[in-house]
Amino acid sequence: MSLEVTENEFVCILGPSGCGKSTVLNILSGLEPASSGEVTIHRPHRANQPTIGYIFQEPRLLPWLRAEDNIKFVVDQLQLPQKDANFRIGQSLESVGLLKFARAYPHELSGGMQQRVAIARALAVDPHILLMDEPFSSLDEITARGMRKLLLDLWEQQKKTIVFVTHNMFEAAYLSDRILLMTRHPGTIYKSITTGLPRPREYEDPKIFAVSTNIARDFLREIGYESETETDRDS
C-alpha cells in the first residue's frame, strides 16, 4: 500500500477493525518497522529533525506525574530554554481548556479530560505531523463530539498535517479533507475520497451525513457483510 499526505492536510484512514490501520500509524511513527518499503517526510520549511505528535486511543499519561509534568516529560526532549518550555506547556494546556488543572494527577481527571491532556501533550512538541489512533473511540458520544469540535478548532488555528485513524464514518466525514478507505485481507487502501465539504463545519450538517452514508454504502459494496461467516461455512 502507498499513501501520500500533503502539508497541513487532514487525512482520515477509515476501515474495519483488524485491517491494519493502527499498524500504518505505527510504521509512520517509527514504532514498528515496515516489512518492506519506506516512509519519507519532506520538510522544505523547517530545518531541524521532524517531530511527531501521537495521540493514542487511551490517554497514556504517566500516572505519577501531574498534567503539566506529563507534558514537560515530552517537551524536555526538544531542549528548549526553560522559559520557552514552560510557555509551551501552559499554552498547550490552555488550548485544550485545562490550564486550571495543570497540577492535577491523571486519576483526578475524567476520561475526556485525560484525553485532552494527551492532545495538549502532542501539540506541545509543535509536531510536523500529528498521528491520531482512534483517539475518541473510548469516550462517550457527547464528550467525543466536544473533542472533535475542539480538534477542528485547534487544527484551524495551528494548521498541522494530521493522519487520523478511525472506524467511525461520520467522524471521518466531519473531520477530514480526504478519507482513505482500507480493507482487510489484504490490508490495502482501495479508495481515496476527497470530501470537498466547506469549513468551518457544523455537526448537524446533512451534507456530512450524506458523505458518511455514501462511504458506508461503498464499504458494503466492496467488502460485503462480515466475510468470516462464509469462511466458516467453507471449512
Binding site: 517509527g30 517531530t51 511527531i52 505528535g53 501521537y54 497514556r60
Partner: peptide, 11 residues
C-alpha cells in the same frame, strides 16, 4: 503502552 508513548515522543 507507556513505553511506546515515550518512544514516539523521542524519549
Amino acid at each position: 503502552k507507556l513505553l511506546a508513548m515515550a518512544r514516539v515522543f523521542n524519549v
